[in-house]
């Protein structure tokens, strides 16, 4: 295994607030890495830094060994690093199938390659992936008409449609019906094992992340607090303190 993503001593400030302070972490090719931490600990900011949404103040971010911190979001996406959002973002006025079609890898091409209809193979793959997340029956519906949980699933399917090497998922189970969460964990695992997508997942649901991730990093106050296997992190006294407060 080699490091797919390397975050080296990244610091990000918003005015006087240090959202990320000297954070280092690595994601190995093929693994499912977890990122946890109390609210406001800097998880989503770190995602923003990695995906090119925020300019990093200090430190370096390497994707497949090459620095990406000066690249734009779209360029980073074309390298194969896709993120989803905590506040789900889909194309509301377009149907699910259209959402999927425009998320395909070939839609990232130049103008000339866009001046063609969606190929049947892409439509088939889109339908398959929608079936994979359980939205096949809704495929012709406008995305805005889906429930929040369904939109979350659609956003996940759109990300898979892009065939990323690394997928950053920001709270994939938030807002999802608890009875569907087990199904979602299973799909995330299958995306990892069958489609070969490396995952870095922010999650507040401890049961989910402990079941899913191979390795977990815990942030608090913008710093890395602990790192290790789910068991190690769960038993770390500092992690308990960060979540529950010092007794």
């Amino acid at each position: 295994m080699s490091a797919l993503l390397e975050v080296r001593n990244v610091t990000k400030r918003f005015g006087g607030v240090v959202a990320n302070a000297n954070i280092s972490l690595g994601v190995e090719r093929g693994e499912i890495a977890g990122l946890i931490g109390p609210n406001g600990s800097g998880k989503s900011t770190l995602f923003g830094c990695i995906a090119g949404a925020h300019a990093v103040d200090e430190g370096d971010i390497l994707f497949e060994g090459a620095p990406i911190k000066h690249l734009r979001t779209a360029t980073i996406a074309r390298l194969g690093l896709i993120r989803t959002y905590q506040q789900t973002r889909i194309y509301g006025a377009m149907s699910c199938m259209e959402n999927m079609a425009i998320s395909a890898r070939e839609a990232q091409g130049g103008l000339l390659s866009l001046l063609r209809p969606v190929p049947p193979a892409t439509s088939r793959r889109a339908a398959d992936l929608l079936a994979f997340v359980g939205l096949h029956e809704k495929r012709e519906e406008k995305a805005a008409r889906l429930s929040f949980g369904q939109q979350k699933l659609l956003e996940f399917a759109m990300a898979l449609m892009n065939e990323p090497k690394l997928l950053l998922l920001d709270e994939p189970t938030a807002g999802i019906n608890p009875t569907l969460i087990n199904g979602l964990i299973d799909r995330l695992r299958r995306a990892n094992s069958e489609l070969g997508v490396t995952l870095l997942v922010i999650e507040h649901n401890m049961r989910v992340i402990m079941n899913l991730a191979h390795r977990i990093t815990c942030l608090a106050h913008g710093q890395v607090l602990a790192e290790g296997t789910p068991d190690e992190v769960r038993d770390d006294a500092r992690v308990l303190d960060a979540y529950l407060g010092v007794a």
């Binding site: 949404a53 779209a74 996406a77 973002r89 194309y91 509301g92 259209e98 001046l115």
Partner: peptide, 25 residues
């Protein structure tokens, strides 16, 4: 009727998302 049309709609519905999905907006 082409992908270009879908790309226009994607920019309309969520420009940041379109960027994050790697479209050459």
């Amino acid at each position: 009727s082409t992908r270009f049309g879908l790309a226009l709609n994607a920019i309309r519905d969520d420009h940041d998302k379109a960027d994050a999905m790697g479209l050459r907006t």
